[in-house]
């Protein structure tokens, strides 16, 4: 049986979580920004494969950080 390669399992790839509309609103209010000001991630990014993301969704990324232990980052899905 041939094992298929999955980018999400790689150690370099942090966890990507899809945010609901409610969560997105909360985050934008917390940082007092608009969606356009978020960093971007492309829809065809291998780390988003099979997670059913659409354009304009917001991704929550939980990174391992050498300085903080764990840090969260947000990206907006673009074309």
């Amino acid at each position: 049986m041939k094992e298929k390669f999955d980018a999400k399992k790689h150690v370099l790839v942090p966890e990507h979580i899809k945010l609901t509309k409610k969560q997105t609103k909360k985050i934008l209010e917390e940082y007092k920004i608009t969606k356009n000001e978020l960093p971007r991630i492309s829809v065809d990014d291998p780390a988003l494969k099979d997670l059913k993301f659409e354009i304009n969704d917001v991704v929550k990324i939980i990174r391992k950080s050498p300085t903080a232990g764990k840090s969260t980052y947000y990206r907006r899905v673009v074309k």
């Binding site: 980018a7 370099l12 790839v13 991630i41 990014d45 988003l48």
Partner: peptide, 14 residues
Amino acid sequence: EIRKILGIEAARQV
């Protein structure tokens, strides 16, 4: 190459 195969977050880490 990393960006293409593992995505933008992995590229940042690299």
